[in-house]
Design a protein around this nucleic acid. Sequence first.
DNA 1: CTGGTGCGTTGCACATTTTGCAACGATCGT
DNA 2: ACGATCGTTGCAAAATGTGCAACGCACCAG
Lengths: 254, 254
Amino acid sequence: MSQTVDRALSILPLLAEGPADLGQVADRLGVHKSTALRLLRTLHEHGLVYRQSDQRYRLGARLFALAQEAMENLDIREIAHPHLVRLNEDCGHTVHLAVYEDDEVLYIDKVESRYPVRMYSRIGKPVAPTVAAVAKLLLADLPEAERRALAERLDYPQYTARSTLNATAFLRELEQARERGWATDLGGHEESINCVAAPIRGADGRVVAAMSISAPNVVVTAEELLTLLPLVRRTADEISGEYSGRAPVPHPSV
Amino acid sequence: MSQTVDRALSILPLLAEGPADLGQVADRLGVHKSTALRLLRTLHEHGLVYRQSDQRYRLGARLFALAQEAMENLDIREIAHPHLVRLNEDCGHTVHLAVYEDDEVLYIDKVESRYPVRMYSRIGKPVAPTVAAVAKLLLADLPEAERRALAERLDYPQYTARSTLNATAFLRELEQARERGWATDLGGHEESINCVAAPIRGADGRVVAAMSISAPNVVVTAEELLTLLPLVRRTADEISGEYSGRAPVPHPSV
DNA sequence: CTGGTGCGTTGCACATTTTGCAACGATCGT
DNA sequence: ACGATCGTTGCAAAATGTGCAACGCACCAG
């Protein structure tokens, strides 16, 4: 807990909301203007913050570069990508890859169903953890204590009538996902969108990532989407096998 | 210039190279392990750094989220995107959107080619400033003093036989780009890839971004690509108009 | 043209924060 | 089971960051 660094880093989410001038930053940090100035200067030297022509500050270019490099270093992503593309070619729907990290679930790769890509557009954005199919699989694999603590800590926004209601219901869903080895989100986030997801496991059997197929009701019904489940699970298992370094892996004995 | 913050931020590019343990971080920072530990802890609390299961550190999730939000707040990008998509539909090639910021040129949007052969580039990745067509336009608009200083400061890697040779040649290219209002990269970065680019201007006439079409020789020759120049320029002008506020935009006049 | 207001910026003295040390504890491999 | 390696903690010294007050500058109104 370094106070100075803590203050400096607090500026970043603040600027993520939009550009701000020195006074605003100082106010929201609760420090003197001169202090805020020095912090901003340091951030600026590192390219994390940019000073636009009207002298206001906003997030800087290096942030993109860093996020980019970080992404490239995720080897699950490297390995999985060709499989995701192939799955997309087979079924035509949107394919997602997600990981869990520090109370958050986030997409790290995506293959669009519609146009030839606009990659990284939503990649990196945190996912609604209580409803997303991939989130259920990732959280279901946490140690029980942590899982329960997290379930209590989360909010349960009612995006739709089918959204997960509360911690109890959520834990039940996680249990089911863990037993079955797959999960769904049937209109829990957006009324007309369904997903089916399968876990990707490392050599030790722990879930390291999860992938899903998403499609709107207008294209395929939930029942039709469920028929793709074997395809998703097979793809996930192939990725698991490759990630573990071994040849195609057997079914996790459940 | 805050020493503590400076050290903490220096950790980020270091971890961007790949995961590292505490000792490695401390060594490369030139500080004591306990110091590095506290810095890493602070970064961790802010989600910029993640501690993986083997206890090594790597860049964290919030970095993605921040980069994401920063991207969404760039209104040039918002405005330009549909135009880029349309241009891509018309010509089929890869379309890029780039901005200049603090000595760096970087892509902030991209629409992939419909052709199987795609060029390698990534949103958020810094662009080779001495050869890229978009870079020439962006740098050509800098004030003369700054432009010359920058030209001297840059390296001139000889990616190919056609890469810009040195500062003098570069400044000449910038001058030409400024006069013509467009620029090209004919095999200057990768032997077989050509680009044509046009500038996007704000209400005051300053160049705020640049866009380009890129295509490999095997798909279209440089001459053929140049025939698309009017299309690129028209699209760029449309975006300029909309960005400047005086154009068919959602909100009517007030 | 002039006086005033709001903003970013600088030098400085104080003290709070950070630092390196050394010792502890855990984990892993032999 | 033992030693080596790595992460972690408390503490005293001091280096660093902090707030203050004054300055410069641009913009606006009188």
